[in-house]
């Protein structure tokens, strides 16, 4: 309990009301997460450019891949009755999920650098609250982007997945879960590195090649031997196979369990590492 201070009467004092305040009584962890999530969502809503800017890379990749490669002959292991656009779209969504995850890390770095974290540390706010909020904001951003890309692909490019509405929703949900897991990995990286450039480099030198060394753009069976070997142990292959299987109604759903397990491990390890890194003094 905060003791109420009784202000001395002084009509001209510039700060007469500053201390005359109710005891706000403190807030729970859940309330703190809610307030901090709301804060970032508000910033996002007033500056939607950030969300839209994040769409540039996946949309460009989508256009480039579908325009450049659609006229080439399909590789022998390409699933029957599936257009290249249909094939590649679930992978583009996973790529976008990774980019959005990186943004979560960058958001935390901004908080660390512009004084928000310094402010929160002087308040009775649990250190994990900001991390969870950053993760949740990432989920919202990913969901919005997935929706925009899907609608754009369906209306403009003619994306027509064979899976039903429920399967398509499950596919999007799994993509969101992957974004969530990678988000924790990037939040952890942000909490330890505390600079935005290395995070962006990390995304470029880890995620970008891993996308190509996976089932994202070409079926694994059609990749050169060594690349196929990499693709077989690449977690993204499992993630993409599973989301693709759901959306397009093609084989590969058996990869959903490993994808979920790997995602859960990355989330837990990321959250643990993030809290440890974040607790270090500024």
């Amino acid at each position: 309990m905060t003791t109420q201070l009784t202000p001395a009467p002084r009509p001209h004092a510039p700060a007469t009301v500053a201390l005359k305040t109710p005891d706000f009584g403190g807030s729970s962890f859940v309330a703190q997460v809610r307030v901090l999530t709301g804060r970032s969502l508000r910033a996002m809503a007033t500056d939607p450019g950030i969300v839209l800017f994040g769409l540039i890379q996946p949309v460009v990749i989508l256009f480039v891949l579908t325009q450049v490669f659609s006229k080439m002959g399909m590789p022998p292991h390409f699933p029957d009755g599936v257009s290249y656009l249909d094939f590649v779209l679930p992978a583009v969504l996973v790529d976008n999920a990774a980019q959005s995850a990186m943004q979560s890390g960058v958001g935390l770095v901004e908080d660390l650098r512009n004084g928000v974290v310094a402010r929160l540390r002087s308040l009775p706010v649990h250190p994990g609250a900001l991390l969870v909020a950053r993760s949740l904001v990432g989920l919202v951003r990913s969901a919005v982007q997935i929706l925009v890309i899907m609608v754009l692909a369906m209306t403009v490019l003619g994306y027509s997945p064979n899976g039903g509405v429920a399967e398509l929703a499950l596919s999007a949900g799994l993509t969101l879960f992957i974004s969530f897991a990678l988000g924790w990995a990037f939040i952890a990286a942000g909490a330890w590195l505390r600079r935005a450039e290395p995070l962006q480099n990390l995304a470029l030198i880890v995620i970008f090649p891993l996308m190509f060394a996976s089932s994202a753009y070409v079926p694994v069976a059609d990749l050169p031997g060594w690349l196929a070997a990499v693709a077989h142990v690449n977690p993204l292959t499992y993630a993409i196979d599973a989301t693709r299987a759901l959306a397009l109604d093609v084989p590969g759903l058996d990869h959903a369990i490993p994808a979920l397990l790997i995602g859960a491990v990355i989330s837990a390890a990321g959250a643990f590492a993030a809290l440890a890194g974040f607790r270090r003094p500024l």
Partner: peptide, 24 residues
């Protein structure tokens, strides 16, 4: 602190509201 610890993405009012909400 020596360096202003405010959320520059928010308005002045929202900064104050944010902290009050965090305090319960």
């Amino acid at each position: 602190g020596q360096f202003a610890s405010v959320d520059t993405q928010l308005s002045g009012r929202d900064n104050l509201v944010l902290i009050a909400r965090l305090l319960g």
